[in-house]
């Protein structure tokens, strides 16, 4: 990310000034700000998306509903929320690898994955994902063979995407909850795959 010509302390001061003015005028409530920050730091995050993925892996019917109409299938789990009102779920297969980007800014399914990581919002990812996705994925340590098609989905304010990663082999006996623990944020954006647990362990319930 570019480094600003403003110092961090100048920016922090400016932000405090604006906060104090908005609070004084009753436009914002400091307690509400703390609640918003707490929600996005602690409650809303990729574990929500992981529940959706794990359910799709264990329930064929749910997966069909999810791929046909992501918005309503996600609503079934009560996970609809701000910035995720209209969802399309795209499935990775041995033939197709999906990758999500927002070239214009940072559109992302907040309610399902939390706030996007810095790399997702970076100029490098926004500019390059659409023209050289294989190279971009290599920077994440992911080599996609030439015979696998890569589909890149450009998000916008009204429509956001979730990648349904491939279920790793060797996980047939795992519970839905244990499967959800394997699913990472990057796997649901398309910059990682989901891997089986290293060894059979306590999570294999």
């Amino acid at each position: 990310m570019p480094h600003s010509h403003h110092s961090e302390s100048d920016i922090a001061l400016r932000v405090r000034a604006i906060e104090s003015l908005l609070a004084e005028k009753g436009i914002i409530d400091p307690a509400t700000l703390d609640a918003i920050i707490d929600a996005y730091e602690h409650r809303i995050g990729p574990h929500n998306g992981a529940r959706i993925v794990a359910k799709a892996w264990v329930s064929y019917d749910y997966k069909q509903r999810l791929l046909a109409d992501g918005t309503s299938a996600i609503a079934e789990l009560g996970l609809t929320g701000f910035s995720s009102e209209h969802m399309v779920v795209v499935e990775n297969t041995p033939q197709v690898h999906n990758l999500v980007v927002c070239t214009l800014c940072s559109c992302y399914p907040w309610a399902i994955l939390g706030l996007p990581p810095t790399w997702y919002k970076s100029f490098a990812y926004r500019s390059r994902a659409v023209i050289e996705p294989r190279k971009v994925l290599q920077e994440f340590g992911l080599d996609i063979p030439d015979e696998v098609e890569i589909r890149v989905w450009d998000s916008n304010a009204d429509l956001r995407y979730l990648v349904l990663p491939e279920r790793p082999s060797g996980t047939e006996d795992m519970s839905e909850e244990a499967l959800a623990d394997l699913v990472t944020r990057n796997a649901m954006i398309g910059t990682a795959k989901v891997y089986p647990p290293r060894s059979p362990s306590t999570i294999t319930a």
Binding site: R128, I131, F140
Partner: peptide
Amino acid sequence: MGGMHGMGPIPI
């Protein structure tokens, strides 16, 4: 920004 060149490596 889609397709713009010269933005460097992805900052992961």
